[in-house]
Each structure stands twice: as C-alpha cells, then as structure tokens.
Design a protein around this nucleic acid. Structure first.
Lengths: 221, 221
DNA sequence: CAAACTTTGTCTCGAGGATGACAATCTCGA
DNA sequence: TCGAGATTGTCATCCTCGAGACAAAGTTTG
C-alpha cells in the first residue's frame, strides 16, 4: 500500500473516525488486490468473504429486484468500505459486487477481521457503525424514492452515480432504466428532456452531467 | 416484568440468540413503560433515547417521504426490539415511533446501555447484529418494491401489516394508500378487487386478511 | 337520538407510462 | 474497412393512475 492510499482511506468519514490504533490494526490484516474489469468480488447468496475498501477504480453493487430486473446499481468510489453486513452477521451476501474497469481494492478476510477483533473487541463496534451508516443510506433512499415522480427519481439516480468520479457515467440506457424502475423508452424521453434543458449530455452508453446544481434543483421543484 | 414477558422476548430471533449472560445484563438495565394510544416514543430528528422492545400491544414506525407523505408504516409486534440504529451510532432518529393502542414496552436508555456495554463490550457486537437484521429487512423491502406493480406492492404491504396480530389490520384507506405510495381512489379499486377474489374483507378503517396463501400467490404471479 | 364529521365507494377526465416496432447510430472484431 | 450486433431515438396504441367531485355509509359527540 502506498502513501496516497492512506490519504484516500483517511478521508472516508467512517474510517477516518476510528481511533488510530484500531485503524492500524485493521490495515495490518488487509491485503491489496487488483481486479480486472468485470471481476466478481462476491455474488448474491455467497458466504461472507470479508471486508473491502476501494483504493482506485470503481466497484458496482447490484441487487436483483423480485421481478428479475437489475436493481440498485450503487457505485462505490475510492475510500469507501463495503461488504460489512455479511462480515458482521455471517449471513449470505445480499447483492453482487463487481469491479467496473480495473480496480485496486483493500481486502480484510473474515478470519483476519476476527483475529483483529479478538485483540480489540471495539472493532466490532466500529463495524457496527459502518452498518449504521449504510442503513441510513438505505433509509434515505427509500424516503426519497417512494412516491416521487420519474423526473425526480432519474435526477437522483444520476447524482448518485456521478458521485463516483467526474460527471461522466458509463452505463447503458437499458440498465439505467432498470435502476430507476421504468421502461427504456420512457427513460430516453426524460433523458432527452434533461439534455434539451442543458443539464446533461447523452452519448453512446454514457451520460455526462453538465449542470449539477440544475439537477439538484429538479429534485426540489 | 412478568414471566410471560420473558417467553415473548426469548422467542425473538435476535434476542434469543444472545448468550444468557448478556441477555440478563441487558434486562437488568431495562424498565417497563406503559404508553397510551398515540403516545410518542421518539420522533424523527430526535437525539437517541435508547433501545426499546414491544412486550404487548403495537408500535408503528413512520417515515416521511421527501414529498411530505407518510411512508413506511412498519408495524412492530411483541418480542421485537427497535431503536437500535440511533442508540448505536448516536445520530438523530430517522423516523417516528408511536404506540398504536395501549402498549407495554421495555426501555433501555442510552446511558443504561452504555453502562452495560462498559461491563461487557460484546454487547456492542450484539447491537450491531440487530442493525444488520434490520438492514437486511430494508434491503429486502427495496428489492421487493422497486419496479413492482401496485397489485403486488399492496399484497406485500397487507402481509407485512398483518404479521403483527391476527389477520385484522386497523388502518384508514388513506393511510394505507400512503404506505403503498398511491392515491386513495386507486387503493380502493385494488382493495375491492382483492375482496371480490375472496382474499380480504374490507370494513370501516379495517382490512381483514381471509386468504393469506392467496395473497402470497399474488406476489409471485 | 340526531347532527357533525369522517371515511368509503364510485364516477369521469386528463396525463403519462408500458409496450411493440423499426430506423438510425455506434462499437468492435474479422 | 466492413459487416454483425448492440444501442439509441422515436413512433402509435393501449392501459392504468391521479385528481376532482360527490353520494353513501359509518362513527363520534352533544
């Protein structure tokens, strides 16, 4: 692990809030892994394989909705930890995680985490706090989605997805439509309307955010 | 606390899985509280006031959706613990909790929990597991809601709500419509259709489930 | 018991999404 | 470079939801 990695990790609100001693202990158990585009980190239903953090690149978490369509493409950006739910409770993974593009990850296997936590049980509390943070994200998502118009939900999905990098989102419209929960044709109509309003630029398998404040405005209008 | 209360608590899958020693320690810090109909246990935005469990009666958790409508009326049944999220991470409550009808609750204030956890840090891990369980519920909810037809979402909402007792759900159609995220008139149309199919019986401010397997069938049809 | 209020049941109409179809555009490998 | 395959852009049609309106049924209160 290089020095810039430490800076990236320290900037995360969860990891950054952990006392330095336990942070060190966790990093001692971690190994860097480099993954190819599309590599599977874990899959829905798998037994837990530990805790992960993104150092570089992009990881996408994908759930399957009940009717088979791909669901919440949460895009994880560098500095963010994930995979804590199954690591803490030992139950199967609730979704898929895969590298999008080449990605460098930090990996703390279950046994390694258990070893560190045996030395310092407070690590369980820390991990619990990470679950809390993600639980709050899920609750916010529910509150912001239910009963909102398609226009608003699309704006939210775009903003969530663009968090991960510059304003460029590489995604097929078919997939984006699945995330918002609408038909591809309907998505296209709304996307084009955003484009006419100067909020985004639409290209092949890509959406670029041009006016982030404008998109934010859509949500509250 | 009476003996039947112990049986109710032990039947809960979270509490029942905790080792007896820590279970006792938690109960030593708990006090019974009896609340009137409509009494506020905590409100959205409040600072944490501890951990709660339902001994008798009904508690409803209500979120507010972004457009102001009431959202996820999760009905908590006896034996279930709630309020762990803010108790663990110290942040404001994400929703309202209120007694529906008279309710007997078990209350572990934040300071009391901290006291117990100071004696046995593993309690933090236990509380983390409770967050995990509720996180999985939230994820399941998202997966089952997004992109589903109104008919399916209504069936799910009815089944969730009826868990709390016999098949009788006391709720105004206006409120139920808010839970499903549709207009009252639309709810009424679907409810009447369910009634024609012999799945439910509709009365004033009440829905009674007649055919639970039939409702389950609606979800997968 | 009767009036005031709440809730339900049912119209109609307008708006907007789902679906199937098909041409245009783009990407990638031979 | 060219062609196959994938993806986007845009139709027309059907269907269902949302909203307003209002009568009917139920509940509460004096």
């Amino acid at each position: 692990m290089h020095d810039p990695d430490h800076a990236i990790l320290a900037a995360d609100s969860w990891f950054g809030a952990i006392p330095a001693g336990r942070r060190e202990r966790l990093l001692q158990e971690a190994r860097v892994e480099v993954l190819e585009n599309g590599a599977r980190i874990y899959g829905s239903g798998d037994p837990p394989n530990g805790l992960w953090a993104v150092l570089d690149g992009q990881v996408r978490l994908k759930g399957l909705s009940a009717n088979g369509a791909e669901l919440l493409a949460l895009i994880v950006r560098p500095g963010t930890w994930f995979g804590e739910l199954s690591t803490l409770d030992g139950h199967p993974r609730p979704h898929d995680a895969m590298a999008f593009g080449m990605a460098r990850l930090l990996h703390v296997p279950v046994a390694a985490f258990a070893r560190a936590a045996a030395a310092d049980p407070e690590l369980y509390r820390d991990l619990g706090l990470l679950v809390c943070a993600h639980q709050r994200t899920a609750l916010r998502f529910i509150a912001q989605s239910v009963g909102q118009s398609i226009r608003v939900r699309l704006a939210q999905a775009l903003m969530r997805a663009s968090q991960a990098g510059d304003g460029r989102i590489t995604i097929r419209q078919e997939e984006l439509a699945g995330v918002v929960g609408i038909a591809r044709q309907t998505l296209n109509r709304h996307l084009k309307r955003f484009e006419r309003d100067g909020l985004v630029a639409v290209a092949y398998a890509q959406v670029r955010i041009l006016d982030l404040p404008g998109l934010r405005g859509v949500i509250t209008e």
